[in-house]
Every structure is written in C-alpha cells, then in structure tokens.
C-alpha cells in the first residue's frame, strides 16, 4: 500500500506542480492555535511538517527558535504534540503529517515508545535533524516496520558517494537543504544554482520524491517550482511572531499566507 506521503506527491505530479510543504511548531503560540493553524493551512498545503520543540537546537535559525521557545514556555510536552496530530487527523485523515525535531526527545521517550505514539496518533513521517546516515540506519528500519517514513536530509556539502547511499536507504521522500545555513537564513545561493544541484541529485534516482527547503519565502518559491516539493518553515514562524506583536490573529494570518504561497506554484 502506498503511503499518504507518496500519494500526496502523486497527486501533485498529476497537477504538474510541486507539493507545498509547511512547517510550524506544535504549541506555537498555543496548543489550540497550532491545531487551528494546521486545520486551516491544510486546505492549501499538501504535506504538513510539525516541529516538536527542543530547547537546545543546533540547526535552527532565529525564527524557529522563537517559535520553539514560545511553545515550550506554554508547557508543550510530547504527549501534547501527539494530541494535536490525533485531533488534526480526525478531521483530515488523508493529509500527511511529518514530525520534525531533535533526537534527544525520542531517546528519552524510548524509540519504540515514540514510534508507538506516532502510529496511534497518525504520524506519517519523521525528520530527525541530528540523526544522520549511517547512524540512523537502525531507527530508520524501525520506522519502516511501522510504515512510518523516515525522511533523510541532503545538503550542498554531502558528497556524491554519500548521496547515493542515502538515496538507496531512503523511503518516500528526501529533503534537500538548499544552502549552507540554519533554517530561515536568507537565500544566499541563486535558485538556478540550487536547481542545478537538485537536478544532479534527482538524476541518481528520478523516482524518489526530492523536496527543497531552507530559505524559501513567497519571494523565492516560484523560481523553484520545478522541484517535487518545497518546504516553507521559518517564514511561517516569523509571521506568527509578527502577528502576535501586532495583536493580530496568527491563525487567519497564516491561512492567507499559505494560500498565497500555493497560488505562486500552481
């Protein structure tokens, strides 16, 4: 049986457009609001990434750190993250949802325990920022057995040999990091160059769904639309920050922004 993630990509291919993938942090700015945000933006986005916040992130830029900080300040726990997913899935059973975060939370929770909760709440995939190949092999296999996608990352620094190995060990989706940066950095590489790298990787196995993330905003998204999918994260976190500052409702604000992002890639 095809995973919901694979199906989402198939749909987008049929419509000849990239999948729109959003990233927001669970519990930002409240548990309720982050659920409301998912409900709203899922009408425009094809795949939803949901961050489970960690207080010592080594690869996140200021915007996502800010979101994580707000969520943790609100007392968000792993069980709340799974609650949010469960509630979301009740109304949107077919929309794939990917949890993203750092390994220590899984390590403390227990790998099996964590995957059990993923399964029962309806999580479709996992991105673990600090669990690279080949150290991730064991855990990735455990995910596979539970039909949860383990999504690996590739970066401009990944060697060709390594790229091949990672692709071979990948599931339904691979994430290409557009540039040397933490999340949310300004796009310091031209979209042309990014797509060049992207296409080189893509040629190794054209069947694999390869998405691009890091530094993508409403300004840059349309220039990258030949990819299988595009991830927008920090920009959304920034909009939550700004709307809170200005006393606006982050839910309606984000709904509009994601709608506009979608318009730019169809």
């Amino acid at each position: 049986m095809k995973s919901k993630i694979a199906l989402a990509f198939n749909n987008c291919k049929k419509e000849k457009r990239p999948a729109l993938i959003t990233y927001t942090v669970a519990g930002d700015n409240t548990k309720n609001n982050s659920l409301k945000i998912l409900n709203k933006i899922s009408k425009h986005a094809d795949i939803l990434e949901l961050g489970f916040p960690h207080n010592t992130p080594i690869a996140d830029g200021g915007q996502i750190q800010g979101s994580s900080h707000r969520a943790l300040k609100n007392g968000i726990k792993l069980k709340d993250v799974f609650q949010i997913v469960k509630k979301f899935k009740k109304n949107n059973p077919h929309k794939p949802i990917i949890l993203m975060g750092y390994f220590n939370l899984i390590y403390q929770n227990g790998e099996n325990n964590f995957l059990e909760s993923c399964k029962s709440s309806g999580v479709d995939g996992l991105i673990i920022v600090d669990l690279p190949y080949p150290e991730n092999k064991n855990f990735a296999n455990k995910c596979k057995k539970k039909s949860i996608n383990f999504i690996q990352l590739l970066s401009p620094t990944t060697s060709k040999d390594r790229i091949k190995k990672i692709i071979k060990n990948s599931h339904d989706m691979i994430y290409y990091i557009s540039m040397l940066s933490t999340t949310g950095g300004r796009l310091k590489v031209s979209p042309k160059k990014i797509l060049q790298n992207y296409n080189t990787i893509k040629r190794i196995n054209p069947k694999k769904n390869l998405v691009i993330g890091f530094g993508i905003t409403e300004k840059t998204i349309s220039s990258l639309k030949s990819a299988n999918g595009l991830v927008v994260g920090s920009m959304l976190c920034k909009i939550i920050t700004n709307s809170l500052k200005m006393g606006q409702n982050p839910v309606t604000k984000l709904d509009k922004v994601v709608y506009n992002l979608k318009k730019k890639i169809i």
């Binding site: 690279p132 970066s155 990944t158």
Partner: peptide, 12 residues
C-alpha cells in the same frame, strides 16, 4: 559520544 549532527556538518 558519537556524532549527532545535522547533515550539513557531516562533510566538514
């Protein structure tokens, strides 16, 4: 110990 690092840092 180990190397629990983002992919970008693997090569460096």
């Amino acid at each position: 110990g180990g190397n629990f690092i983002p992919e970008t840092l693997k090569k460096p």
